[in-house]
Amino acid sequence: MIDWISIYRAQFAVTFGAQLQYRASLAIWLLGLVLAPVISLVVWTTVAASGGGQAGGFSQGEFAAYFLALLVANHLTFTWVAWDFEFRVRNGSLSGQLLRPVDPIHANIADNVTYKVITLLAVVPATAVLAWAFEPAADTSWLNLVLFLPVVALAATLRFLVEYSLAMAAFWTTRVFAINDLYYVPLFFFSGQLVPLALLPDWVRAVGNLLPFRWMLSFPVEVAIGRVAPSEVPIGVACQLAWIGAFLVVRSMAWRHGVRRYSAVGA
């Protein structure tokens, strides 16, 4: 029986130390993360202002609430595993990790969680300042806000698994930057980062419902601002779990086949 608790305790200690080494780049990365939703927020409040205070059923305040919730949810769910993994495959530093008796995915999980915990200390005040500047308003309930927590945790799990599965392509192609970029386009569109999914044409939304992206980001945001009633949350959670199950299988199959092809290119 593997002692997961001590494995994770060790991983957390290592990643915590490593992250704090580079405080300046943490702050910089954070600024980038905050800016993107602010752009969309401004564009859409401008649209709402020119449309007599609302557009597509969203008031200016609701757009602000939507994009601020998106900022927090995006922060909690994003990963950088694809870059990281490609780098380790390309320069051969994955070899060292393969010698350990634990799947390297656990190091990535610990890394990700530590980063989120540390940076949350800055994301929360940043969101508060933006909330003061843009005056969000949403018709939501306490129950919705509480439900946001498990839903965003599932979204983060799903997004991590999807991006980890994608990162496995590095075993076959060595360079996956282009594949990543390709992935970010539909993600941007169908996860509600461009615009709330409710404002998209019906047929686009229908396509989006067949893809995993909504469940990786948009869904927790919709829950937080009260666009999804608490009684509808279980259906969404079921979709999230189904996708998580599917990508657990994809990830482990890709890992098992990929690692056999691994030849430590640059080592």
Binding site: I28, W29, L31, G32, L35, A36
Partner: peptide
């Protein structure tokens, strides 16, 4: 370590 500065630039540039 300032790679992330380019990241800021990119998101600002967006």
């Amino acid at each position: 370590r300032v790679e992330n500065i380019l990241v800021i630039f990119q998101s600002m540039y967006e």
